[in-house]
Amino acid sequence: MHQNDDNEPKANGNSQGSSNDDHVVLPVEAQGRIGQHLRRVYGEILAEPLPDKFSKLLSELAKSERKE
């Protein structure tokens, strides 16, 4: 499959049957479905409990500044 996607993008045409994905525009409802799944998957990562190391790091950074 070609992945030269840096070529000039086409306007959102609606022509069917083209082999170029840039010409294919998903119906709004399908776009919405894809978006829902994406946000659900991404949301699972966002919702993961945070290890302490990040807040510790930020505190250390702030502390080191006060000494400056």
Binding site: D5, D6, E8, P9, K10, N12, D21, D22, V24, V25, L26, P27, E29, A30, Q31, G32, R33, I34, H37
Partner: peptide, 26 residues
């Protein structure tokens, strides 16, 4: 370019729809 991002997002959606069997009817 902005158009490049739009193109990438569109290609990604089209491919995902194809792989997951999302059709026009949702």
């Amino acid at each position: 370019a902005v158009g490049t991002i739009k193109s990438r997002v569109n290609r990604a959606r089209v491919k995902l729809a194809e792989l997951l069997g999302v059709t026009d009817a949702g």
